[in-house]
Design a protein around this nucleic acid. Structure first.
Length: 272
DNA sequence: CAACGGACCTGCCTGC
DNA sequence: TGCAGGCAGGTCCGTT
């Protein structure tokens, strides 16, 4: 489900409801996520005040007094703040109750998500430490991309979806930003010019910003903290639009597979 | 190293 | 109606 805009939408939704509150109870109903939820999670959280909620890549970091809850939504995860009365449903795996009796509820049918506790600097965690820059980090520049792509033969789409290159660009926004930048998704990363990388940087930032403003993209099951979908789907120019006309030139949008993922592009606007 | 395929899971849709 | 097959917004790991 979630790429950066959906994760950021979730962060902005839960933050005002939870920061400053103290966790009173933790219930883990299903430990088998991408990594098993540690048995000590409840004990670690209980009685602790939530200081801040930040985001790094697609991870949400819940900063408590003595450590951090690192969570990831995987492909199908959602986090919602719900009333105690709202009944638990299938695939609701973790409930964290706060001192106003509201509950932060983690739901994830496919269980590719994560809920990890660390008492150390979360940025040093083995899953976060190797990540590339955020899209708005000044370090994420055309020169950086050009240099990093040198000699690389992988498709540009794979290259920008690699979280070691830049974080937050998933399957939807990879296709969308390449279309906006006029780059063919199959082009070898090492053969993209500096000028085109400049365009790509601009468009990755722009499309992610616009998607955050719209509350993310809902294709199937993404819902925000209030259970509502995101509205960016209406602004997608190529993703999931195979056979439909390109909004720039009218040519039929094409669907191909790159790196085992569906990829959408306009054969005319993205010739090179 | 880089590239690639497979693995992890459930649900939903299509077509026979 | 039932069932098989394919597909889904992510990421890690092993092999070449």
């Amino acid at each position: 489900m979630p790429e950066l805009p959906e994760v950021e939408t979730t962060r902005r939704g839960v933050e005002p409801l939870l920061v400053g509150r103290t966790a009173t109870e933790v219930h883990v109903f299903e430990r088998r996520l991408r990594q098993p939820v540690s048995r000590g999670l409840a004990k670690a959280l209980q009685g602790q005040r939530l200081m801040q909620i930040s985001r790094r890549a697609k991870y949400l970091l819940f900063g408590f007094e003595t450590g951090t809850l690192i969570s990831h939504l995987g492909m199908s995860g959602t986090l919602r703040v719900v009333d105690q009365k709202l009944q638990r449903q299938t695939h609701d795996h973790v409930d964290i109750t706060f001192d106003d009796s509201r509950i932060l509820r983690f739901r994830d049918p496919r269980r590719f998500g994560l809920m990890l506790w660390t008492a150390n600097d979360p940025y040093q965690h083995r899953l976060l430490a190797p990540l590339g820059p955020e899209p708005w980090d000044p370090a994420f520049s055309a020169r950086y991309l050009k240099q990093r792509a040198a000699q690389r033969t992988t498709a540009i789409k794979n290259f920008i979806m690699d979280a070691h290159t830049v974080v937050g660009v998933g399957n939807i926004y990879a296709s969308e930003s390449l279309h906006r930048a006029g780059i063919n998704p199959r082009r070898k990363a090492g053969s993209v010019s500096l000028a085109r990388y400049s365009q790509l940087v601009v468009h990755i930032q722009a499309v992610l910003e616009a998607a955050i403003k719209a509350g993310g993209t809902t294709l199937r099951d993404f819902v925000n903290n209030e259970g509502k979908p995101g509205y960016f789907r209406a602004n997608l120019r190529v993703y999931d639009r195979a056979g439909e006309p390109c909004l720039s030139c009218g040519t039929a949008i094409r669907s191909i597979v790159i790196g085992q993922r569906s990829t959408y592009y306009c054969p005319r606007c993205q010739r090179s």
